[in-house]
């Protein structure tokens, strides 16, 4: 009886270890590295300090040219805006957005790199901002 119990416990422990083994490895940010190779931006938003959109219309995202064109309201304080990217499943952004970003230097547009779920494809998008003019 005692022998059977020991075997049973050993089997359960092995099952637990097998069950907990990750199917996918984890990257330096604690995110799963998956099989997906897709790598693109699906949506872009830009919020002001009042957390309201500063866009005058939807951002135009060109996934081939890897550009994002955004038209913003006249008078937008571009030194203090919050960008928001929507990415394809499992992808991540580099650099990370951790708060307000200064987009005021329109001659040197900001760039963000999308990294695919398998972390093998990297595509750099450039954000071009146009301010409304009277």
């Amino acid at each position: 009886m005692k022998r059977y119990s020991k075997i049973l416990i050993a089997l359960m422990a092995a099952l637990c270890v097998w069950g907990c083994t990750p199917e996918f490895p984890i990257d330096e940010d604690g995110l799963l590295i998956t099989d997906r190779a897709e790598c693109f931006v699906s949506n872009f938003e830009l919020l002001g300090t009042d957390f309201q959109t500063v866009r005058t219309k939807n951002a135009v995202i060109d996934t081939v040219a890897q550009t994002i064109q955004v038209d913003v309201f006249f008078g937008t304080d571009l030194r203090n805006v919050y960008p928001q990217f929507s990415l394809v499943t499992d992808a991540k952004l580099d650099p990370k957005i951790v708060g307000k970003v200064d987009f005021s230097d329109l001659t040197n547009p900001k760039t963000y790199t999308v990294v695919s779920g398998n972390r093998k494809v990297r595509k750099t998008y450039t954000v071009f901002i146009t301010v409304q003019k009277p």
Partner: peptide
């Protein structure tokens, strides 16, 4: 109310850029 832009009601400091 300025054509092509959204200006509307504003509070600006006396030395803000002239365009504002």
């Amino acid at each position: 109310s300025i054509p092509n832009i959204t200006f509307n009601h504003a509070l600006v400091s006396p030395v803000a850029e002239a365009q504002y």
